[in-house]
C-alpha cells in the first residue's frame, strides 16, 4: 500500500513546480509562481536589465527551474529600481509594477534567538545574562528602502516588520549575524508557504 501511496503523492504533486527556499525571490512584480514557471521562457532579459547584478540565472536542475531568474538575498538584495519589470516579453513579470510600494515578493521575518536587538531587549528585561552578542545594531532598519513603513523599532529596541514589507532582501544582505542571518525572507509567490521556508530548515537540522 505504501508504494501506491508514494505513486499517488508523486503524481498529485506533479507537474514539477519550483522549490521553495528562504531568501530566494523572483524578480519584483512577478506573477504567482505557478504561472511564472509556465510563462518564463528563460530569455534572460531581466537578468540583463538588472543594473545592480542582483538577479541571477538559476542553474538548478531540480524541478525544472533551470534558467529562471532569482534574487539570492543572502548575497545581494533587490534595490527595487524597477528596471526589470518592463522588459519581460511574456508578462511573467507584471509591467504595471512601477512603484516600490507595489512590490511584494516576500516577507521578512526575524529570528528572535540570534538578532542582536532582540537579545538586547531580553537582557534589558532581565530574561538573559548580558553577553557579547547583544547590541543595538539596527542594520535592517537602516537599510530598508521603506524605513518606518515596513519596519519600525517597537519600544525603541525591537525591530518589527509590518505588512508593507516588500521582501526585497536588503536587510538580509546587511545583517551582520553569521553564518545564518538573523533575518530571512519567506518568498511570497511560491507554493507551500506553510510547510517550507525557514521552518523546513529547522526541520532539516532537527530542531522542530
Amino acid at each position: 500500500m505504501s508504494i501506491f501511496d508514494n505513486i499517488k503523492n508523486a503524481l498529485n504533486s506533479f507537474p514539477v513546480k519550483s522549490t521553495y527556499k528562504i531568501n530566494r525571490m523572483r524578480p519584483p512584480g512577478s506573477v504567482d509562481d505557478d504561472l511564472f514557471m509556465k510563462l518564463c521562457i528563460r530569455c534572460a532579459r531581466c537578468v540583463e536589465a538588472c543594473p545592480y547584478r542582483v538577479l541571477r540565472r538559476s542553474s538548478a536542475t531540480k524541478n525544472a527551474e533551470i534558467g529562471t531568474p532569482y534574487i539570492y538575498a543572502d548575497v545581494a538584495g533587490c534595490q527595487l529600481c524597477m528596471k526589470c519589470t518592463s522588459v519581460c516579453p511574456t508578462g511573467a513579470i507584471d509591467s504595471s509594477t512601477v512603484e516600490m510600494q507595489q512590490v511584494s515578493i516576500g516577507v521578512a521575518r526575524i529570528n528572535e534567538d540570534t538578532c542582536m536587538n532582540h537579545l538586547y531587549a531580553k537582557v534589558e528585561s532581565g530574561e538573559l545574562e548580558p553577553t557579547g552578542n547583544m547590541a543595538l545594531c539596527n542594520s535592517c532598519l537602516n537599510t530598508c528602502p521603506l524605513k518606518d513603513d515596513a519596519i519600525y523599532l517597537k519600544d525603541g529596541i525591537i525591530p518589527t516588520i509590518t505588512e508593507k514589507c516588500t521582501g526585497c532582501g536588503l536587510c538580509v544582505e546587511r545583517c551582520p549575524i553569521k553564518p545564518i542571518k538573523a533575518i530571512y525572507i519567506i518568498p511570497k509567490n511560491m507554493p507551500d508557504a506553510e510547510t517550507a521556508g525557514y521552518y523546513n530548515y529547522l526541520k532539516r537540522i532537527g530542531k522542530q
Binding site: F14, P15, V16, K17, M37, K38, L39, C40, I41, R42, C43, A44, V47, E48, R57, A64, I66, G67
Partner: peptide, 21 residues
C-alpha cells in the same frame, strides 16, 4: 511537465543567454 523547457535544445538561445552571463 508544465514548464517551457524546449529552449534547452535550441543552441542559438543557449549561446546568446550564456554569452550574456
Amino acid at each position: 511537465i508544465g514548464v517551457p523547457l524546449l529552449y534547452l535544445i535550441s543552441p542559438p538561445s543557449i549561446m546568446s543567454s550564456q554569452s550574456v552571463l
